[in-house]
Design a protein around this nucleic acid. Structure first.
Lengths: 143, 143
DNA sequence: GGTGAAACGCCAACCAT
DNA sequence: ATGGTTGGCGTTTCACC
């Protein structure tokens, strides 16, 4: 995990369709060597997968909100109940004003309300606080 | 933008290294047709780019935190000042308890403190509230 | 807008250096 | 880690439907 590995990761984050020949040239390596390094990064799980970045708004997900959840018995595989709600993009256990923080995307406020309703049916959830996003400056992947 | 397009997007989110031939077979189209549809989805900006998903912890980003920022004059291109802080992964203007919500990743709490210090040097920022993530159930891309 | 095939280029796997 | 080589596959384009 040296400087070259970090460069390779950065380049692939920008555009994962690069050929290994190009990739190698950009870090001062041969295509084969670049390929081998990337293969190992995948093998070690540093690179989880190659995927596409989608414009959520274009798919009809116009509303983004963060939901603080109070209560709930978050033991064992209790993240499952949250993963079962398809509109929940992220779920974190937090230290602070609530037990869990969710990032939620829906097509509208009506659907957001519906997600909240489903949240109250989870485990011992006693309350929620919702923060609606008005504008997103950026959502990026760190290098 | 029909059902097939949505399926293609879902499949590519799972694994963007799929061949167009495979992709086509999975949605009941020829490779060429699948290729054409994906090309148009890219052209229209629905698919922003193809990238890799990286294990942030493996890169030394062990701490994730959400920071609520009070104050600040968020007009025009004021997101710039936030984008200039490399540890800030997301920045949203919100309706609620603060003006801006940030997602921040650092290698440790010392570095987190340093990010907060830099935040106070931005525009008219008057205060911050930090929520530290203890455990992440999941961070996924919606289909 | 989709099909099928042909031409091209790249990837992946080798090996000697 | 390089550079050369080779086989095989995927991409890309095209005429046709």
């Amino acid at each position: 995990m040296d400087e070259i590995d970090r460069k390779l990761i950065g380049l692939l984050q920008e555009d994962a369709t690069r050929s290994y020949a190009t990739l190698g040239a950009e870090v001062g390596l041969s295509g084969g060597a670049a390929h081998e390094r990337v293969r190992k990064l995948r093998e070690r799980g540093v690179i989880r997968r190659t995927t596409i970045e989608v414009d959520q708004a274009a798919l009809g997900r116009a509303v983004t909100a963060y939901v603080l959840v109070d209560g709930g018995t978050w033991m064992g595989d209790s993240g499952r109940a949250l993963a079962a709600i398809p509109e929940v993009e992220e779920a974190h256990v937090i230290a602070g004003p609530a037990s869990v923080l969710l990032k939620v995307r829906t097509s509208g406020t009506t659907e957001l309300q519906d997600v909240l309703r489903r949240l109250f049916q989870v485990d011992g959830v006693t309350g929620t606080q919702t923060v609606v996003v008005l504008e997103t400056f950026f959502e990026r992947t760190l290098t």
